[in-house]
């Protein structure tokens, strides 16, 4: 592998991390807790995509199936688990444990139902490569990168240029004040969870195409979470930045040191960032209010 190829892979992985990290960061910025259910939702969406494409439908149809699943599961979790807890003013730590519960539940439910075997997503991209200036690039990498960019672009447009997007950003600044100013917080929460479900599904599909679909694939989202920690929890820009940084660093570590140290490196980075710069690269500080 040439260095250029590695950079391209790393950017495509980084783009997916960035999309996922934005999903984390969005929920974190509005509701102030880490939605660990994300990995599970990503996996469930990828499975739906797999089933649909296995039934003989095309890539687009399976992508739609994945996104619909992602949105539905994400909303179901919000309505059944998180919203009742928020109504009781539960500690955010409890919300996080509940989210972990959702993740463990989904992962092991699928493991018990469908087994641990790896499934390949039959996709139009899978094995194809195109060659630009003697560099072989997988089409799936290009598609992943372009899709992530488009998704991030749409999201930015939505958050900054539309009315609903502005209510989301207002809630991210201060959700209780936003509620007092007449913003329908329940509607905002639905929007946020729809977006995060969509990002989970997109990432799930591409990870599925690039690698495989299996119940444990949600663990991949931990990387996205690490990316959002590096960027600064709750910051969307930070999440994107962290996603690309992590993607690039991981590929470099895997390429030049050893693939076995890749995960060790990512988790190590996360711990070091949390210990010494808990607000990440661009995250906002927090001061408990009296």
């Amino acid at each position: 592998m040439t260095i250029i190829q590695q950079m391209i892979t790393s950017v495509s992985v980084g783009g997916l991390y960035a999309v996922l990290a934005v999903g984390y960061a969005l929920i974190y910025s509005v509701f102030d807790f880490t939605n660990f259910a994300f990995g599970g939702i990503m996996m469930v969406s990828a499975f739906s995509g797999y089933f649909v494409s296995n039934a003989g439908f095309g890539t687009i149809a399976s992508m739609i199936a994945a996104i619909v699943t992602g949105i539905l599961v994400s909303i179901a979790v919000e309505l059944l688990a998180y919203r009742p807890m928020r109504k009781k003013n539960a500690k955010r730590l409890f919300l996080m444990i509940s989210a972990m519960g959702v993740n463990i539940f989904l992962t092991n439910l699928y493991l018990s139902l469908f087994g641990a075997n790896l499934r390949t997503l039959p996709s139009g991209f899978k094995a194809n490569t195109i060659s630009i200036m003697n560099v072989q690039i997988g089409t799936v990498d290009i598609a992943a990168f372009l899709t992530s960019m488009v998704a991030l672009g749409i999201l930015t447009f939505f958050l900054y240029k539309t009315r609903s997007g502005i209510t989301v950003r207002a809630s991210a600044t201060d959700i209780s004040t936003a509620g007092l100013m007449g913003i329908n917080v329940n509607k905002v929460s639905l929007i946020v969870f729809i977006i995060s479900g969509t990002t989970a599904a997109i990432a799930g599909m591409f990870f599925g195409m690039k690698y495989t679909v299996y119940p444990g694939m949600g663990a991949m989202s931990t990387k996205a979470f690490i990316a959002s920690v590096i960027g600064g929890l709750g910051s969307l820009q930070g999440a994107v930045l962290g996603g690309f940084l992590l993607g690039i660093m991981e590929t470099l570590v895997a390429g030049y040191i050893s693939a076995t140290y890749r995960d060790l490196f990512s988790f190590g980075i996360m711990i070091v960032v949390l210990m010494f710069m808990p607000n990440g690269l661009v995250g906002r500080g927090d001061q408990s209010k009296l």
Partner: peptide, 28 residues
């Protein structure tokens, strides 16, 4: 971690990372 007054959820995450790191180090 604690000197930084790391919020409760950050601490939990940090420990999750720690557990994984220990296992990965032993594995490697």
């Amino acid at each position: 971690t604690l000197r930084n007054k790391l919020r409760g959820d950050y601490f939990a995450i940090c420990m999750l990372g720690f557990g994984t790191v220990v296992r990965l180090i032993l594995n490697n």
